[in-house]
Design a protein around this nucleic acid. Structure first.
Length: 449
DNA sequence: TCTGGGGTCCTAGGACCC
DNA sequence: TCTGGGGTCCTAGGACCC
């Protein structure tokens, strides 16, 4: 039997801050998002406080699957309430959290042969076959928990199960029920006990069940994790697809998901941020977009990628009822995939100009790089869409075609030409450029596009 | 006054090809 | 009765995660 452990830090951002300020341990602590917009982390004391006073500020505008009444509240709505209760409030410090996260994951990696770093504050560990080495897994997990606390001052909970979904679920219970003292090993309990525990977990708290699925499942009479475990797998498969089938199997202890020890490269890199103040001016918008583009390009180069798709979006504040709402985005494919900051920022600015409307109070901008591949592979892909041309992708003939295009229409004209083209049209253009049949018709190709 | 910033996967249907 | 059939690519939309 496979055995997975999920180690998850409690209220990670808040705990990081508390770690350096032990005097805060007995006070409510919250951490705010970018521009101090809303609450993204709250320690247990703050959460309890909020639960007692939910009616004071309602459930908030964010549709979160599993809302804790405190999380994602706009800060301004709860600021005075928090102040009355002597809450410590922090702006987010992502460098600190990133550093603490790296330390925690490094430490956790020491406790198992295999580790998957699942998120900033969660690791899956492979504990399969460890009982012979370490004996009781609950005791082992308690030891892990204590080491992390001693080393970093971070409280963590450990859930153990025979599938990732069960480990997640065990972690959830370990955090919620004080009697487990932060550790629950579902592989060590009897079937009856396991089922009794699953009955106590709301369907929406199962990993992979968001609000939409939860609503639908409840309507079908599936209200708890146990209900899902024993539900008819074929019916669910038909109605929800393969994801739900997998969840049912995982709940039954059949591991369908494996540990991913090497994080895959990103398929898409996004940099988006709301502004502290409304921005009207194109120049200022350009600055922001150029910065985001440069950061995204940096990230792209870190994974040795090149992007083939670029999009820029801007919007006004959707919460401002008294102002007209405007949101738009524009995308382009790049005939030459690139990781160049200069080119990417330049093209991003060009896209921005297409969607910018004077007179709007902009609130947010974003840059997205997509269709990312490893450098060498993408070159081949782009220069040789047909196998018959792939023998020598950088053949003299091809290069001369490109030289010819650039000479005739100016450097960068290919990017310009491909703006707004559909994927298919781009391929057609590339094929046209690569194919000896078309080399004499470059002028036509460029004119057409 | 003041409302986050990232990501992934699956599916259905249409276009197109042979 | 039954009006071809199989395959791929692309896109949009819907769901989820932290």
């Amino acid at each position: 039997m496979l055995i997975f452990a999920l180690v998850d830090a409690n209220s990670f951002y808040a705990s990081c801050e508390i770690s350096f300020r032990p005097d805060l341990a007995k006070r409510p602590v919250v951490v705010l998002s970018n521009n101090d917009g809303c609450i993204v982390a709250a320690n247990q004391i703050a959460k309890d406080l909020a639960n007692q006073h939910t009616q004071n500020y309602g459930s908030g505008g964010y549709a979160s699957a599993k809302p804790t009444s405190m999380m994602f509240q706009p800060y301004f709505k709860v600021a005075s309430f928090l102040e009355r209760h002597n809450t410590a409030v922090f702006s987010s410090n992502y460098e600190l959290y990133g550093d603490m996260s790296a330390r925690m994951h490094r430490m956790l990696g020491e406790f198992a042969a295999a580790q998957e770093i699942y998120s900033i504050d969660e690791s899956f560990l492979d504990l399969t076959g460890m009982t012979g080495l370490v004996g009781d897994l609950t005791a082992y997990a308690q030891m892990i928990k204590q080491k992390i606390h001693q080393g970093l001052g971070l409280p963590v909970a450990v859930g153990i199960g025979s599938s990732k979904t069960l480990a997640k679920l065990a972690n959830h219970l370990a955090k919620k029920r004080v009697q487990f003292k932060g550790v629950l090993d579902l592989t060590a309990v009897s079937e009856d006990t396991l089922n009794a525990l699953l009955k106590q977990v709301e369907i929406g708290d199962v990993w992979g069940v968001g609000r939409r699925y939860a609503d639908k499942l409840v309507a079908m009479g599936i209200k708890s994790a146990y209900d899902l475990k024993v539900a008819n797998i074929k019916t669910l498969r038909k109605q929800f697809g393969v994801i739900m089938e997998r969840m049912v199997r995982e709940l039954n202890g059949q591991a369908c998901l494996t540990l991913e020890m090497v994080p895959p490269d990103k398929k898409q890199i996004v940099r988006s941020k709301s502004f502290g103040q409304p921005v009207h001016d194109l120049k200022k918008l350009e600055q922001a977009v150029a910065t985001y583009a440069a950061r995204a390009a940096e990230k792209l180069r870190q994974q040795h990628g090149v992007c083939q798709y670029l999009s820029v979006s801007i919007r006004t504040n959707p919460f401002k009822q008294d102002q007209p709402f405007y949101a738009n985005h524009h995308a382009m494919g790049l005939v030459y995939p690139t990781d160049s900051t200069i080119l990417i920022t330049k093209l991003a600015k060009r896209l921005l100009k297409r969607i910018y409307q004077p007179g709007c109070a902009y609130h947010k901008a974003a840059v997205c790089l997509g269709e990312i591949s490893v450098k060498g592979a993408m070159q081949l892909d782009v220069f040789a869409p047909d196998p018959q041309y792939s023998a020598n992708p950088k053949s003299d003939a091809l290069m001369s075609v490109m030289d010819k295009v650039n000479a005739k229409f100016g450097k960068g004209s290919l990017e310009l030409a491909s703006q707004g083209l559909k994927q298919k049209e781009q391929w057609a253009m590339r094929r046209a450029m690569c194919s000896p049949r078309y080399t004499t018709r470059i002028d036509e190709v460029m004119v057409v596009y």
